[in-house]
Design a binder for these strands. Structure first.
Lengths: 151, 151
DNA sequence: ATATTATTGCAATTTAATCTCAATAACGTA
DNA sequence: TACGTTATTGAGATTAAATTGCAATAATAT
């Protein structure tokens, strides 16, 4: 199995782009941690380690990572994008609490067969999926049932 | 079955807010059409009909509609949010083509039982869901297999 | 009718993301 | 290895979506 760096280098040369230390360093940092991230956080993590890259470069690099399937836009909350690296994972399923904002990742074995069925029905070649289920977690149910109150 | 206006009025009085013609006119306009919309488009549609509401009020109203479950944020593309009204629909499933951007809505009978199972496992009370499957439609498969090229 | 206060509209503000441009550096070629 | 081409970088300017402050207005309770 190729590493994410190899995937990215292949993508770079396919498209006639150039290998730069900035891009590869950003990619490395993204895959160094398993949690979701945003641009600000990624930028600070790099600065903290003494790596000097501009935010402009991070934004530009992220577009490439998303385009070659290494990174996914998770959601747009708090006025900006949140990302995650997805190489190796097939799809992503999130259970999100409307009360406290907690996000639980879950696996669902029956899902892939539903997707195959879907692909046949609509003639699609499926690349990935994202299933987001919203509701209230145990805590938020008992506390204030039926109310989100994010404001 | 309650109308969306009744739902909204109940929500308004529950929270001690006030009924205003602006909010109700915006809501009416949202439910007058069945396609997805964004703030700019909604604003122009209202202006075009001689309804005078500010964008600020639209932004403020949308937050209420989302909060009471009448409207959903579909996605954040082209640098801004896109919405849809969801009252009457349980959840929403989208098949999105990475090539041409086409969005197909589909129904999936087996899904609700999977969700019930999920709810039990994690102790969640589920409000709604959104399942987004990305891939390439028939056309985009034959044209340029494996390449999205949105730029 | 009157008092209270939520809501509106406008303009100013905020801030994520993009763009411009000069300097730099990656890559192909001699 | 040196050179020319041009993609990439970083800094700051710019763009535009969304929010906020504030005075005027209007909805609700009494």
């Amino acid at each position: 199995m190729k590493s994410e760096l190899e995937i990215f280098r292949d993508y770079i040369s396919e498209r006639g782009l150039r290998r730069t230390p900035e891009r590869e360093r950003i990619l490395q940092e993204i895959f160094a941690k398993h949690e979701h991230f945003d641009v600000e956080e990624l930028y600070l993590r790099l600065r903290h380690k003494g790596v000097k890259v501009s935010k402009a470069s991070i934004y530009r690099a992220l577009r490439l990572f998303v385009d070659c399937g290494l990174v996914r836009e998770v959601d747009y909350t708090d006025g900006h994008w949140h990302y995650e690296h997805i190489y190796g994972h097939g799809g992503h399923n999130h259970l999100r609490c409307l009360g406290c904002g907690e996000i639980v990742e879950f696996e669902m074995p029956g899902l892939s067969s539903l997707e195959e069925q879907l692909a046949r029905t609509y003639g699609y070649r499926i690349i990935n999926h994202h299933w987001e289920v919203k509701g209230y977690c145990r805590n938020c149910q008992s506390g204030r049932p039926g109310s989100a109150d994010n404001g």
